[in-house]
Design a protein around this nucleic acid. Structure first.
Lengths: 257, 257
DNA sequence: ATATAGTGTGTACTAGATACACATTGAACA
DNA sequence: TGTTCAATGTGTATCTAGTACACACTATAT
C-alpha cells in the first residue's frame, strides 16, 4: 500500500527536520451550544482518538511550532495559545499498546518502535472561536472533530490526563484573569458569557452577581443593540474592550496587603 | 590537558544515555538571613554563572531527573520541586557567545558546536531549607553557592529570564497555596514566616493582619516553647501541621460563586 | 532602674462578595 | 387580541474577608 511508503518517507523527513525527543500536544477548547468542546483526531483505520500535536522544526521557536500545529488543524491564525505543562514520564504511553496502534497505520514493527520511544511532550491549550474553526485531520488521522468535554472517550497516550490538566489550568486562569475573548463571538450577551463561565467551572452562578462582577472588571462595553430573535426579552449585546482586556491579562491579581 | 578528554568522554556518554534536545534547569530557592537566595554555579575557568541543570536518562521520568539534579547539587532528598515553564525559543542562547564559553572549558570548536544547538529546557523551581544544603559543583563548574535574589548577575543562556519567571510563579503560588514548609526550619516564629512572605512578595505587611490570616488558614500549630536568645520579647514558636498543610496544597481556592 | 525595640493581642471600618425580589419584554398560545 | 410564560433588567440588604490602627508586655542593653 502506498500509504505505507508515504508514512515511512514522512517519518524520515521528520527525523531530519525536527527536534528529536520532543513533541507538542494541543488541547483546543471551543464553546458551542452551551457546551465546552475539545478538538480531537481519530487515527487512520482505528476508533482511537487523540489530541492534535506536532513537532518542532530545528530552527523554529517552540511556541511558533504550537501555533503552526493549531493553524493546520483549525485554519485559525490569531489565537489564544499557552503552554500549561510538560509531560515526561517514562510510561506516558502505558495506557495503550502503542506498537499495535502504529501497526494499524501499516508500519512494520521495527519502524514503529523507533517512533514510540518515550518523548517529552509540551502541552499547550488554546481557546478558539468555535464557529470559525475548520477542523482538518493530519496525515496520521482521517477525522477531526469537536467533542463535548463531558463525553471525551479514552484517548491514546496520556492525552486524557492532558485534557484534565488543561481544564484545571483554564479554571485556575479564570480566577485571576478574564476569559472569553477567544471563546465567544465578537458580540455576545451577558447570559452567553455567564454560560461560558458556568460551563468551564462546572457550577451555576447568580445572574445578578455575575453581571455585577463582570461589569466591575471594566473590560466589557455594552452596545446599544440587543439580540433579536430569542423567545424572550431581548438581552443587550456586549463586546470586550480589547485594550482594557489586554491590560487585565497582564495585571493578574495577587495575594497582597 | 586531561580535563579535555574527560569532558569529551562525558559528552559522548551524555549522547548515548540521555535524551537529546531536552534539558532541565532548576531555580533553587532558599531563605536565609531575611533574604531569598538562589543557588548558582560558576563555569570552570570563567566568571560566568548559571543555573544548575541536567539531562534526562532515556529510562527516567523527567521529574525524577530534576530530583536527581537537585540531589546532586544540594544533597537534599525530600524537596519541593515543581516545573514552572518550558523554554523553547531558537535564540534562547542569544545573550552570550556560547562557543566562546565552551572553548574556555577546553573543548575544540567542532565539539562545542554539537553541544550548543538549541535545546528545549524544562524549568523547575525548588524550595529548600537553606541550612541543610551542601552546595556542590558539577563537572562543568568549579563553584556552587547561594546568591541573594537581588544581586544575581547576568547569567549564561536565558537563565535570568528563568529566575524571573520562577519567582513570578512562586509569588502566584503564594496567592492560592501555603508556602513555607520547605523554606523554613521545622520550628519558626511568626515574624520569621512574615519575613519570608515579605521577601518573596517584595512588600511589607501588617504584622497583626498577617498573623490573623495565617492562623485563619489553620495550617499552623503554636508550640508551648518560645524562641529564646533574642534581644526582645520572646516570640512563640510554630510548626506546620503537615496533614492540613498538604490538604491546603491540594485545595487551591478558585474563583467561585 | 530605665530605655528601647520587638512581640502579643483586639476592635472598628471598608469593600467586595453574596443572597435575594420585583418589574419588563417578547414570543407562544389560547 | 390578550393572556401566559420564561427569560432579561435592575437594586438593596447582608455577610464576610480584608484592612487600618493602638496599647500593653518583655527581654536585653545601658
Amino acid at each position: 500500500m502506498e500509504c505505507k511508503n508515504e508514512l515511512q518517507q514522512l517519518l524520515a523527513d521528520f527525523k531530519a527536520n525536527h527536534m528529536p525527543s520532543v513533541s507538542i500536544d494541543c488541547v483546543i477548547f471551543g464553546f458551542h451550544d452551551g457546551q465546552l468542546k475539545v478538538l480531537l483526531l481519530r487515527w487512520k483505520n482505528t476508533d482511537d482518538w487523540c489530541l492534535p500535536g506536532g513537532r518542532i522544526h530545528k530552527q523554529e521557536n517552540m511556541d511558533a511550532a504550537a501555533h503552526r500545529s493549531l493553524r493546520e488543524r483549525t485554519g485559525l491564525h490569531e489565537i489564544f495559545l499557552q503552554q500549561f505543562h510538560t509531560f515526561g514520564d517514562v510510561n506516558r504511553y502505558r495506557h495503550y499498546s502503542q506498537i499495535e496502534t502504529l501497526a494499524k497505520l501499516g508500519l512494520p514493527e521495527d519502524v514503529a518502535k523507533q517512533v514510540v520511544s518515550r518523548d517529552i511532550s509540551v502541552g499547550y491549550y488554546a481557546l478558539v472561536e468555535f464557529a470559525n474553526v475548520v477542523p482538518t485531520p493530519d496525515i496520521f488521522t482521517d477525522e477531526c472533530r469537536w467533542w463535548d468535554i463531558q463525553q471525551i472517550p479514552a484517548l491514546l497516550f496520556d492525552h486524557n490526563e492532558m485534557v484534565s490538566l488543561a481544564l484545571k489550568t483554564l479554571r485556575r486562569q479564570l480566577s485571576y484573569q478574564p476569559i472569553g475573548y477567544n471563546l465567544l463571538p465578537e458580540k455576545f450577551t451577558m447570559p452567553d458569557l455567564q454560560q461560558l463561565y458556568e460551563t468551564i467551572l462546572g457550577q451555576t452562578m447568580d445572574r445578578r452577581n455575575f453581571q455585577k462582577r463582570m461589569l466591575g472588571y471594566g473590560i466589557l462595553k455594552r452596545l446599544d443593540e440587543r439580540k433579536i430573535g430569542g423567545a424572550h426579552k431581548s438581552p443587550y449585546l456586549y463586546r470586550f474592550d480589547k485594550e482594557k482586556y489586554e491590560k487585565a491579562l497582564e495585571t493578574e491579581s495577587l495575594f497582597t496587603t
